[in-house]
Write a protein that binds this DNA or RNA. Structure first.
Lengths: 175, 175
DNA sequence: CGTGCCTAGGCGACGAGACGACTAGCTGGT
DNA sequence: ACCAGCTAGTCGTCTCGTCGCCTAGGCACG
């Protein structure tokens, strides 16, 4: 369900093919959600079936035809309804914390290694986010739409940043 | 897969029934992972099939029999192997950020409301985590096992805390 | 006396997501 | 000349997780 909403959201930016969508998931909203391409195409099919989007085939030279998916008024309505609706509870799912929770089973060295590997991983991610953020420039003068999109990136940055601090602290104090 | 590991981890603390496990998921590791009870029972079945755990039926007076699941040596080995293994990439999945990302479709007031609702939600969660944390007391003198478990809770607290800060900032600066 | 909740466990169906394979023409590099 | 990679899309299978419903005895409340 959520994937359908995110796709509708992306279609408000511009009409897209499944392929275009996949690239957006890998790039612009990769820090929020990621999707399997098979899943994307299936969901696009459902959106068309339920009248949320319509397909326009655009032939190209030297490349496969583009099946452009355009959002319909019904689709826009459904998107707005979702955005304004009661958010349903998000169950916690933090695989890494799961490891840490039971890492007492390991030797101390192994725990330290676990934490350090995570640290390099998150640091790399943070670096990536910061680059994306830098590409956006100063938020002053952004309209609400652009501001909110950039804000989600800042949240991901803040998140990575606070995890790094936590990791360092745990490493320092680990008995 | 991950659920199997978490269950094995819990079984190292003490033998448990599916029912016991469900309560642990709702309480102690609720901030890390949550699981459907049907899923728990199914996974327990698999663990027994693959020799990771064995069942001991304990009759009770006035209550249904307890099917206690005890972790085996093979189970302990599998758990340690998992804890030490390469963590696989965790795709980002933040439904709320998904909303915010496209919230530009809404009126300004509706966005503010969205942010505020989230804020009360997270604040309540934070309160809950803080209570759990207070129940644990001072970390000084904890062994590694207990320290790491408490550390995951602190991570969840830090996470909620940094989200609250972000929410306030976004509300303030929202164009 | 009935209603609802607690303990304990189970079943079946469904949707979401992950993974891999396959088609097909064009482009760029060695 | 050949292999790799990009654009674009399709299919099938599998696992994971969710949801709802069911059994069944004991307990407390009103």
């Amino acid at each position: 369900m959520i994937l359908a909403r995110l796709i509708l959201g992306l279609l408000t930016l511009s009409p897209m093919t499944g392929y275009d969508l996949k690239r957006h998931f890998d790039a612009s909203i990769g820090h929020v959600w990621n999707a399997d391409k098979a899943q994307i195409y299936r969901t696009l099919g459902q959106l068309v079936e339920t009248g949320m989007a319509v397909v326009k085939v655009v032939p190209q030279e030297n490349y496969p035809d583009r099946k452009e998916h355009h959002i319909t008024e019904a689709g826009r309505g459904a998107l707005r309804a979702w955005l304004g609706a009661e958010p349903d509870a998000e169950p916690a799912r933090e695989p890494f914390l799961g490891r840490v929770f039971f890492a007492g089973e390991l030797e101390r060295d192994a725990v330290v290694q676990l934490l350090q590997e995570r640290r390099t991983r998150i640091a790399a991610q943070l670096e990536d986010y910061r680059e994306q953020r830098a590409d956006l420039g100063d938020l002053e003068g952004f309209d609400r739409r652009a501001y909110l999109m950039a804000a989600t990136l800042e949240r991901s940055i803040g998140q990575a940043d606070s995890e790094l601090k936590w990791l360092r602290q745990v490493e320092r104090n680990l008995p």
